[in-house]
Amino acid sequence: MPRVSLTVNGKPVSAEVEDRTLLVELLRETLRLTGTHVGCDTSQCGACVVHVNGDSIKSCTLLARQAEGAEVVTIEGLAAADGTLHPMQEAFREYHALQCGFCTPGMVMSAIDLVKKNPQGLSEQEIREGLEGNLCRCTGYHNIVKAIDAAQQVMHGKVKELPRAAAE
């Protein structure tokens, strides 16, 4: 079987794959990085979104061999070595932007890419439109939008600390 070599979450990895193996299968089954999920088979749901060379992509719609030499980041690679969460992860927790957690890894990876590519800042409507490739069945997106809005303020250096959710 052919071998594919790439960097995943900062570590070089090399694995034998079939030519038809998808990146998500390499991540989940060979590398046992099961944080990346598969929620559909028509590239609609976005549960499988990871970063490849800095861009969010659906890892169910990329052959593992297409990622030869690529830098891949998955949900497992977001937090700092000391466990400090990425601001987007922290915002999702603060704003209750997840319930069952299944769409969450893809949602977080998409959201980070969305915010990074829009340094000018995103309106609520732009955030909603920017999530077109990710489905959530639990939250109604309300809190996801709030979380991304809060995280973008931290990521763009507008504020030092994540704005806290309103107390009840």
């Binding site: 099961t34 603060e94 890894p105």
Partner: peptide, 18 residues
């Protein structure tokens, strides 16, 4: 804040297909 969130946000959930 939910205590289950940390594992879901870190990719450490344990779903059946995992």
């Amino acid at each position: 804040k939910r205590r289950e969130d940390l594992r879901f946000l870190s990719g450490r959930g344990n779903y059946t297909d995992d």
